[in-house]
Simulated scan of single mutants.
Amino acid sequence: MTETARDSSTPRDPASLVIGAIAAQVIGGLVPQMSPFVIGGLMDGLSLSERDAGFIIFVEFLALAVTAIAIAPVLPRVSYRRVAGVAVALTLLAQGASIFSASAGSLTLLRGLAGVGEGALYAVSLSIVCSRSSNPDKVYGYFQVVWALGSVALFAIGGQLTAAFTHRGILSLIAGVTLALAPLLFLIPDARAKSGDGTAADVIQASPLLGVMTLAAIGLYLTVSAAIYAFSAPLRELAGLDTTAVGYALTVASLVGLAGAGAATALNVRWGRAIPITGFCVGFSLITLALCLWHNPTAYVVALVVSVVIYYFSIPYLFGLAAELDRSGRWAAAAGSAYLLGFAAGPLVAGAAIAAAGYASLAAVCVAITAAAWGLVMGVIRRLSRAARVAQPIDVLA
């Protein structure tokens, strides 16, 4: 299958662009990454139920996702650096106030405000790479490398601070990381997005159907990924492991996950997107079946670690596909919203599936949703390939 792909010989992106985009990505996605500790800290520090603590996080996730998708059409017409500056200021203000909040009501409001700033930064990180980078897929791979490396330290420190200071500890860590990374946002180019250059991707960008299909695929894939991740601890009971063993497994998985991110960065689109995307969809389905149906401690640990590797490998290709649709970065920014909505929906879908028919039902639902996401992606790739063939000049041999 022929696909549109960026020329591997294109020049390297400026380090300032890559570093600034990574800083925006980390600040924008830090709370979803640390959400297990935030929920646990809220429950212990404010004596909240699982439902109330989950609702606070849901409000922040919803604000994050809605902001990302609402700001996406506007980003190409404004200064990325100014948007990032306003967003990080709002985020820091809300995060600082959250540390000292003593009621669930005020904390819900403050986390919602923080989500607005985080959503804007998340959208900026994806949009600026799409519109200003010569190779968005590779930079999105760098994002996953940083997440894989940073999560090892963040999980270790976050666990200690949450145990010692409950919600104030983990919120202070999030605010501290945000403050430390904020100066790097000045490296983001103070310019609007570049206009399209007449490539095949730009020719079909007027069709919203491909964008909707891409966003739906990202949302569906993240739903099943988050479903398995959220219930990784309960799944350990099927394998006869304790919580400590799961903690060690997740720590190892975060470190080994670097292999997935590195592979995506190195492979890039050398084999196109259809082959890698098909590979990780099949791999994730097999891992899901192993986690839910194979009650063996060794198999559980191996499957959990491989699932994280697959996750870090898969995300650059999904964001790269969104970037291929529109070089101004609008669909790439909206992809962040689909990612976050899927991340938030995962635990709800998993809980409903398990309540209906146990973990076998969870496996069946995850495999079915993954297949649906794969079908949508293949449809988008086929349309992009067709547009690329039409745009290519036909050589006539005399």
Rank of each mutant, 00 (worst) to 15 (best):
I394Y: 09
P189F: 03
T199Q: 02
F55Q: 08
L92N: 06
V302I: 11
H167A: 00
I218E: 00
P136F: 12
Q95P: 05
R327L: 07
T278K: 01
S337V: 07
L235M: 15
A23P: 08
V18R: 15
T178N: 01
A65R: 06
A387V: 15
A114N: 14
A153E: 02
Y229K: 05
Y80P: 12
T162G: 05
G211I: 05
L185Q: 10
V74D: 02
G283E: 01
A216P: 14
A266K: 14
G283P: 09
G320A: 06
I310S: 05
T108F: 10
D137L: 14
L107H: 10
S285I: 03
G240M: 05
S285K: 03
I354C: 03
R6T: 00
C366M: 01
G105H: 09
E60S: 14
Y122P: 01
I354V: 14
R168C: 02
S103Q: 00
L215A: 08
A21P: 08
V86C: 04
Y359V: 13
Y80S: 11
I174P: 09
A230C: 05
Y300H: 11
A217E: 10
V365T: 08
S9Q: 03
M43A: 13
A175T: 07
G379Y: 08
A334G: 04
L62F: 13
A303F: 00
S8P: 05
P316F: 09
V145F: 13
S106E: 10
L121P: 14
L113F: 13
S307Y: 07
S285V: 02
P189I: 13
D137H: 00
A5K: 15
G283S: 10
D202G: 10
A216N: 04
S35A: 09
Q160M: 12
P11M: 05
A70C: 14
S131C: 13
L318N: 02
G240T: 04
D242I: 11
W294H: 15
T4M: 13
F343V: 12
G329Y: 11
I287K: 06
T288S: 03
E324T: 06
V152A: 00
E60W: 09
L289V: 15
A371V: 02
A322W: 13
A303Q: 02
A180D: 03
D13F: 12
G169Q: 06
G329C: 08
M1Y: 07
V129C: 01
F313I: 03
Y248K: 01
L220F: 06
V31S: 07
L126P: 02
A357K: 01
I57Y: 14
T178S: 06
A355D: 15
